[in-house]
C-alpha cells in the first residue's frame, strides 16, 4: 500500500508543480538570460553524445538491414529503413534517454542540493517562487532544444547509415541511391511525429526531474537517492510514453 501511495503522491506533486510553474509563464521574457543559459546547458551537455550515438545507431541499422536485405536484392531500401527508424522511433527515444541521463540527473542534483542546503527555503522567504526561476526556464529550454537535438540525431544517424552502407563490402550501396529511397519514404510527417515524441519525452523528463529534486528531504545522502530515482523514473516514463505515443501517432 505504501509504495502505491508514494507514487500517487509523486504524481500529484508533479502535476501541482506544473500548474504552479505555468502560472508564472508570463515572466519568461524577463528571464531570457536564465532561459538561454539553460538552452546552452541542455545543448552543450547532450549534443556531442547525441551525435556519436546516433552515428553508430544509424550505422548499425544500415549494417543489419544491409545484411538481411542483400539476400533479397533490396539493398537500396536500406535508406528508407534507416530514415524511418531514426526519425520515428530510435531518434526521439535515444535523445530522450540521453537528456534524462545527462540533463535530468544534473537538474535533480542541483535542485535537491538547493533544497537540502535551504536555498529553496531562502527563495520562499524572499517571496521568489522557486517554480518561477528554477523550473520555468528549464521547461522552456527543453522544449526549444528537443527538436534541435532530434533533428541533429536524425541527420547524423542518416549519414552514419549512408557511410556504413557505402563502405561495407557486402553492401556497397551508392550514397545517392541510399538517400533517394530515404527521401522517397521518409515523409515530413514522420519527422514531425518524431519531434512531437521528443518534445513530450523531454518535457516529462525535465518536469519529473525538477519535481523529484524539489521534493528531496533530509541530508546530502538524499541528493544521490533523488538523482537515482529521477533517472530511473524518467527512463520508465520514456518507454511507457513511447508505446502510447507511437500508437496515437500511427
Amino acid at each position: 500500500m505504501k509504495p502505491i501511495l508514494a507514487v500517487l503522491e509523486g504524481i500529484g506533486d508533479t502535476v501541482l508543480l506544473l500548474v504552479r510553474t505555468l502560472r508564472h509563464a508570463s515572466s519568461l521574457p524577463r528571464q531570457l538570460p536564465r532561459f538561454i543559459d539553460q538552452c546552452y546547458q541542455i545543448g552543450y551537455a547532450t549534443l556531442p553524445i547525441v551525435a556519436i550515438l546516433s552515428f553508430f545507431i544509424g550505422g548499425v541499422l544500415a549494417l543489419q538491414a544491409g545484411y538481411s536485405m542483400s539476400n533479397f536484392g533490396a539493398k537500396e531500401f536500406i535508406g528508407s529503413l534507416v530514415g524511418l527508424s531514426m526519425a520515428r522511433a530510435l531518434g526521439p527515444v535515444m535523445v530522450a534517454v540521453l537528456v534524462a541521463g545527462r540533463v535530468g540527473s544534473a537538474i535533480t542534483a542541483e535542485l535537491a542540493s538547493m533544497k537540502v542546503y535551504q536555498e529553496v527555503d531562502a527563495l520562499v522567504t524572499m517571496n521568489i517562487p522557486p517554480e518561477r526561476i528554477l523550473v520555468l526556464p528549464r521547461l522552456a529550454a527543453v522544449l526549444v532544444m528537443m527538436p534541435v537535438l532530434a533533428i541533429i540525431a536524425n541527420l547524423v544517424g542518416w549519414f552514419g547509415g549512408a557511410l556504413v552502407a557505402h563502405t561495407v563490402d557486402f553492401i556497397a550501396l551508392e550514397p545517392d541511391k541510399y538517400f533517394e529511397t530515404l527521401r522517397r519514404y521518409t515523409k515530413f510527417d514522420d519527422i514531425a511525429d518524431g519531434i512531437i515524441k521528443a518534445e513530450v519525452f523531454g518535457f516529462v523528463v525535465v518536469l519529473v526531474c525538477c519535481s523529484i529534486g524539489l521534493r528531496t528531504r533530509g541530508g546530502p545522502r538524499e541528493i544521490g537517492a533523488s538523482v537515482t530515482k529521477a533517472v530511473v523514473t524518467s527512463l520508465i516514463l520514456i518507454l511507457v510514453l513511447d508505446y502510447f505515443l507511437t500508437k496515437a501517432l500511427l
Binding site: E110, M114, Y117, A122, N127, I128
Partner: peptide
Amino acid sequence: RMALVFQAGALFNSLTVYDNLALYPREH
C-alpha cells in the same frame, strides 16, 4: 517584507556574493 538570516546562511551556492544580494531586488 520579511527577511530571515538563516542559521547556516542558506546562500545561493551557484551565484556570486554580488548576485546573491542582487537577486531579490532584481526579481522584484
